[in-house]
Structures are given as C-alpha cells and as structure tokens.
Design a binder for these strands. Sequence first.
DNA 1: CACGTCTTTTACCAAATGGTAAAGTGTTTT
DNA 2: AAAACACTTTACCATTTGGTAAAAGACGTG
Lengths: 211, 211
Amino acid sequence: MNQVAPRKTSANRAKVEAKILRAAEKVFAQKGFSGSSMDAVADQAGLSKQLLIYYFPSKEFLYHSVLRNMIDIWIEKMTFVDDPNASPAEIIEAYIRQKIELSRDYPNGSKVFAHEIINGAPVLKDYLLDHLKPQFEKDIQLINKWIENGQIRPIDPEHLFFTIWASTQTYADFSTQIQLLLGKPKLDQKDFDRASDFLCHFVLNALGAQK
Amino acid sequence: MNQVAPRKTSANRAKVEAKILRAAEKVFAQKGFSGSSMDAVADQAGLSKQLLIYYFPSKEFLYHSVLRNMIDIWIEKMTFVDDPNASPAEIIEAYIRQKIELSRDYPNGSKVFAHEIINGAPVLKDYLLDHLKPQFEKDIQLINKWIENGQIRPIDPEHLFFTIWASTQTYADFSTQIQLLLGKPKLDQKDFDRASDFLCHFVLNALGAQK
DNA sequence: CACGTCTTTTACCAAATGGTAAAGTGTTTT
DNA sequence: AAAACACTTTACCATTTGGTAAAAGACGTG
C-alpha cells in the first residue's frame, strides 16, 4: 500500500519534473511549441531524450504541463484584486505593479503565452473563455462604475486593459528590443522599477485618478 | 502572341515571388522560423515544395526575404515624422494612428517581428542597432525638449515609446485574445478606430498635451 | 538475498524535414 | 530551327523528429 514517509523516489521524481518544466519553459519561450524539439528540452534539462520521455510521455503533454503550471497565477494577475475599500488609483497602481513583477519573475512563462496567443491560442482558447473572460467582464463593470461616479475620466475600459496588458508584458516578451535600445545586456531591478513608476504615473494621469 | 517589353517570364517570376512571400509571411507569423516548414509555405502558396525551393533556395533565404520585405516600412513607422511646425499632440496622435494602421494592414508582418524579437532577434539585432536605435535616440531628444519647454508633463521618454509600441502592436500580435474578450470573430475597422481613439486620448491625457 | 518497483540506458523506427540532381517542358533569342 | 534560357516535375537523400520496446541498473522491503 502507500508509504507514510514521502517515498524517496517520489520526492526525486518531483525534483526532476520541476527541472524539466523549467527547461521546457525556457525552450518553448524561445521557439514556441512547433519550433521546439524534445531533444532541445532534454539538453536544456541535462538528461537524455528518452529519459525526458519517461517523465513526460509526449511533447504535447509536456507543453500542456508547462501551461498548466503557469496559467492560474497568470490569470489571477490579469484580474483586479477585489478590495471594495481601495480607491481606483490604488487598485490600478497595485495592478500595474503586480503585472510588471510578473514580467520580471516569469519572463519565460510570459513568452510561452505570447507564442500561444500569437499562434491563435489553440490550447488556451477554451480556458481563456471560461476563466479570463468572466473576470474581464466583471472588471470592466467596475471601471464603468468608477466612470459613472466621476472617479476617473470616461475611457474605453476594454482598451484600457489591452493597453495595460501589452505595456506590462512587453518588458518580458520584447525584453530583447528594450535591452538593445537602452544599451543594457539585461534588464535589472532598476529598469523594472522605472517601468512600474512610469506606467503608474502614466495611466493614473491618463485616467485623471487622484491618489 | 506575347509581350516583348518587360520579359514575360520575369514579370511572372515577380508575381510568383510575391505570392510566396505573402504565404511565407503568414506561415512564419503563426509558427516563427523554426516552427515553420518549407512544405507548409509551399502549401499555403499553392505550389510544390521543390518549386518553392527553386524560387527561394533555402528556408533561411526565404525568411530573410520576408523580413527585408517589411523592415523598412516597419522601422519608418516606429519613428516620428519630423515636422517642426506640428505640436507635440499632433505628432503623437499621427504617430499612434499610423502604428495602429500598421497593425491593421500588416498583422502577419507584425507577428513575424514579434517572433523574431521574442526569440532574441537573432537576425534583426544588427539592423535594429544600426537603424532603429539612432532614430529612437533622436526621438527621445525631441520629447525631452518638449518636456523642457513645458509642452508635455515630465515623463520617462524611453518608456513612453515602449508603451506606445506595445499597445499598438498588441492589436496585431494578440488579436486572438482581443477578439476572444470582445466576443468578435475578427477585428473590424470600427475596432481599430476605437483603439486609435482610445490610445490617442489616453496618451495625450497622460502627457497633459493640449491639441 | 530475492522480489517488485522505479529509473536509466540502449537499440530502433517511421515520418517529416531541408535540400540536391537531373530530367522534362515551355519560351525567347539568334 | 536551334541554341539558350526559364520554369516545373520527378526521384532521391541524409538528418532530425517524436516516439516505442525492452534490457539493464538501483533500491527499499519482505
């Protein structure tokens, strides 16, 4: 039957699986699903292709696992925190900062999603419809309420989200371009802070939202 | 029986090449370079793989041709029009609108670039350094002058560009997601107009730029 | 130590991939 | 009409791809 102690082998397996998922995330981030090979993932993870296949029996399963590993935290950060006591400015500022943190902390995850969406979201489409869209519509309503109450300027709430998503995720997805133009080999904490500060001021000014 | 002037064969070749480039753009847009096969491009163009290879002797050459085909118009639209008589608001509004038009008119080109940049810009890096960066730095200076003159609020000019680029290109690159959330099978002219209007108002308000 | 279970390696394989070679067809030029 | 050129098809090929099968090793438990 089942062991009481967390069976040494299982513990090991979890570690190997985590290592593989990190490696796969990196490879898929660069080349997308079709452009990535199991061999490349195995190399990146430091094991043989056959062993990789032992842990993840197919490329599709591996890809789905990578997505599943990120999707919940991802969608959570794409929706507002529901705090009825906070002001619009506070909610939006917290929102922007957490999105930038996501780009900083999970650049590969962000790129995997970017590939998936550019590709037409063949895998994530249903999930986005079921989980992101309802949240999105709720958040739209909240923004419309703010507009009705005169708390922010009247703007197109849908496009506000598209703009915030795009301009926060660009620090992950297009980091190469940004590094190139800033003349930096890599974006550091200061760059992300500047990005957050810029975007918060920018968006709050655009909305005419007082802190 | 046949035209003498612009050598019938050459004229035909130009047409076939154009057809192939359109097809390749579409395929590369979906899967990126490594994810695309010559077979897929040939299929999309409606000819045999061998014939495709006759016109474009290698996949790399085809990819480079696709990029070369877009890059100049692309970089041109990423830089300000130098009109010393126009106000900041006018320049920026024109800039945003032309970027949105680019997303509307060349969604596949935009996605090919997106793949290329996400991938680390292996092909375009040098070109961006040589052509985009100098223009970028010139435009930064112009914005700093506006700030000094009190024509717009003081903001981080670099990040202003990153935000405008991201939020205009998202209507091409992430159109799947936007369609999904707007509940539309395709973005139409009205959607692009709304996006332009939103972004112009949004950015000009954020900058405190009077029209 | 012998047993079953989990892990790793070795050996293979059919399909897809980018590409070559050359034969055949059509068209233009001399 | 013949030579020269441009286009298209057919045949082929080495490598890479995702994946299977099974043997060999590692290891804790009875």
